[in-house]
Every structure is written in structure tokens, then in C-alpha cells.
């Protein structure tokens, strides 16, 4: 007599905890993800920031004016780039300076004379609330930074920040 074969059943694994954790992580990463801003999308250069290990404070986002000194990837010219995070202040500043076209983007390439005007106008428009940060490529000559610091000093903007990358990366 043939044995009665027990019907095989595919084994079932309880995936519920796995899926729970996966969704938890998914929501976490979705909320913490920071997408490239318009300013970052427009820029035609990559800044190789100098490394520092002493300071750990993060770069702010609100009421920040960033002066970037970068080397263009195409023609390898060094230039100043200026951006203000606060849109109201930005609109006011752009209006105050006639050399800036009306359709200027969030970040503009400027010469040192325009930069001079931009810094004082930003100070005035924001009622001295905007913080300044210098985000310079480590390969540039120091004179670019020194000239900028001299402009800042002229307008009594005595405090500013150097943007650097943390040594060794990490969180």
C-alpha cells in the first residue's frame, strides 16, 4: 500500500517585524534627506573645502550670507560668488544695486566692487542680523580671502565664519 503522502506546505516566515523596521528606517531617511537647493544646482564649480578638526559647530541655514570663492571647473578662473539665504533680504539687496540684473539668480558671480556693495547692502537690509560665511576653495590664493576680510572689516562686520569640512568625515 502506498504511503499516504503528507501534503507539502511552503514554509511561512513572519516578515512583519522586518517590514516594520524597514518602514521605520524609510520614514527616518525620508524626513532627514536634504535635497539640493536651487543655489547648489546652479553652481558650476566644486569647492574643495579645507579640513579642520578643532571646531565642530555646524553651518547655519537661516539668515546667512555666503561668499564663495571658487575655481570654475571649465575655465579654472577664480571668482567670488554671493548668495543670501533669506529671500526678502535678497530681493531688497538686489534692488538696491543697479548693476545686478532684475532676473538675477539666488547665487551670483560678482567682482570685488559689487561684492563691496553687496555686503553693506546686506548688512543694512537685514538690520545687521545676517551672519557671514566664507566658503573658499583650499587651492585658491590667500589674497582672495584677505581682500574679502578687508571689506568686512571696513563695514564693521567683524564676525564671520570659515566654512570647512570636518576632518575624517563621519556624522
Amino acid at each position: 500500500m502506498p504511503k499516504i503522502k503528507k501534503k507539502r506546505t511552503g514554509f511561512v516566515l513572519d516578515m512583519t517585524p522586518l517590514v516594520d523596521i524597514a518602514f521605520l528606517l524609510l520614514t527616518f531617511f525620508m524626513f532627514t534627506a536634504k535635497f539640493k537647493s536651487d543655489t547648489e544646482n546652479e553652481q558650476k564649480f566644486v569647492i574643495e573645502r579645507p579640513k579642520s578638526s578643532a571646531d565642530t559647530s555646524k553651518l547655519g541655514e537661516k539668515d546667512l550670507a555666503i561668499v564663495k570663492i571658487a575655481i570654475d571647473t571649465v575655465n579654472s578662473d577664480t571668482s567670488y560668488y554671493y548668495s543670501i539665504s533669506n529671500e526678502d533680504v535678497r530681493a531688497q539687496v538686489y534692488q538696491a544695486i543697479p548693476t545686478i540684473p532684475a532676473d538675477a539668480k539666488a547665487m551670483i558671480a560678482v567682482d570685488s566692487a559689487t561684492l563691496d556693495r553687496l555686503i553693506i547692502e546686506t548688512r543694512l537690509a537685514s538690520k545687521y542680523k545676517v551672519k557671514f560665511a566664507i566658503d573658499a576653495d583650499k587651492r585658491i590664493e590667500f589674497k582672495w580671502v584677505a581682500d574679502l576680510m578687508e571689506i568686512m572689516r571696513k563695514y564693521k562686520q567683524t564676525e564671520f565664519q570659515f566654512v570647512t569640512d570636518k576632518e575624517g568625515g563621519g556624522l
Binding site: 528606517l25 524609510l26 531617511f29 525620508m30 532627514t32 534627506a33 573645502r49 579642520s52 578643532a54 571646531d55 565642530t56 559647530s57 555646524k58 553651518l59 560665511a133 566664507i134 566658503d135 576680510m149 568686512m152 572689516r153 567683524t158 564676525e159 564671520f160 565664519q161 570659515f162 566654512v163 570647512t164 569640512d165 570636518k166 568625515g169 563621519g170 556624522l171
Partner: peptide
């Protein structure tokens, strides 16, 4: 999202003139 997240955000050095 895991792959595209970058964790090394820039830090700052405070300077004064």
C-alpha cells in the same frame, strides 16, 4: 534614501576681525 544621504555636512570656524 540610505545611499543618497550624505552625512558630512560642512562645519565652521568662527573668525573675528
Amino acid at each position: 534614501f540610505i545611499v543618497s544621504t550624505s552625512f558630512n555636512s560642512p562645519v565652521v570656524m568662527e573668525m573675528t576681525v
